[in-house]
Simulated scan of single mutants.
Amino acid sequence: MSTSQLEKFQDEVEIPDGVTITLNKHMLSFVGPLGKTHKNFRSIPVNIEITDGKVLLKAIGDRKKDYAILHTARSIIRNICEGLIDGYTIKMKVVYAHFPITVKVEGKKILIENFQGERAARITHIVGNTKVIPKGEDVILTGEVWTDITQTAANIELKTKVKNKDHRVFLDGVYAFEKKKGLEK
């Protein structure tokens, strides 16, 4: 392999001001203005080093798959750094035709009550450090880690999926309608 091809299999991420990153074996710990979090890179085959304000990433192999994994790791680190500075917000809308759906939060659980007239509440869990705020017909999810917020939103949508009926007619559910950078109050 030529040196230009080898350079292709390494990348670096600038650490923004206000964010500190520490490496302990495969665990990266992030501390920023909005809080702190950590990410385990044990299952991601990438060599990680931290030197003078940069995170250096090197792929283990030299195949196309290793190149893709390298850039996935870069995106994960970049998104966590941006989230610790700005935060992320997802807005979801509660939609119903006949039975009014209510969304409540109890600890780390989200209760979706009266979905299609059901007596028992549908229960889903909050992932990570995500804050869920029900406001009337809207549900606002905020936090620092993008993957945790989107997984929580996906859990809510999946719990309100209509089964055994025509989904073009029965449109009840909780749906994401806005995703943005920055915290919503």
Rank of each mutant, 00 (worst) to 15 (best):
L111S: 11
D148E: 10
V174Q: 09
L171P: 15
E184S: 02
L34K: 10
M92K: 00
G53K: 11
D166S: 12
N40Q: 07
L158R: 12
K8Q: 07
G87D: 00
A176T: 03
C81W: 09
I123H: 13
L183N: 01
E137F: 06
L28M: 00
S4R: 14
L57M: 09
I50T: 13
I140S: 01
T20Y: 07
L56G: 06
E82C: 02
H38C: 04
R63E: 09
E137K: 08
P134Q: 13
G53A: 11
V132I: 15
H71L: 12
A59M: 06
S4N: 14
V19I: 15
S75F: 05
A154I: 08
K65Q: 10
D138H: 03
I156R: 06
K54W: 11
I60Y: 10
C81P: 09
D166I: 10
S75V: 12
R122Y: 03
V13F: 08
A153H: 09
I77D: 06
Q10V: 15
K93L: 14
E144H: 04
E137N: 07
A153I: 13
L6W: 14
L84D: 03
G18S: 03
F30P: 04
I77F: 03
K39L: 06
V94H: 01
S2F: 12
R168A: 13
E184D: 05
G35H: 08
I60K: 03
N47E: 14
F99K: 08
T22V: 06
R63M: 09
K64V: 13
H71R: 14
I149C: 07
C81N: 11
K181Y: 02
I21N: 02
K25T: 15
A120W: 03
A73T: 08
F30H: 02
L111C: 07
R78P: 04
G35S: 10
R42A: 13
A73Q: 08
G32F: 00
T130P: 15
G136T: 00
V94T: 08
A59D: 04
T20I: 01
I133F: 01
K181N: 04
V31Q: 04
D52P: 00
D172V: 09
T22I: 04
I60V: 14
C81D: 13
V95R: 03
E106A: 07
P100E: 14
V169K: 12
P45T: 02
E157T: 06
T142D: 00
G107W: 02
I156F: 05
H38D: 04
L57F: 07
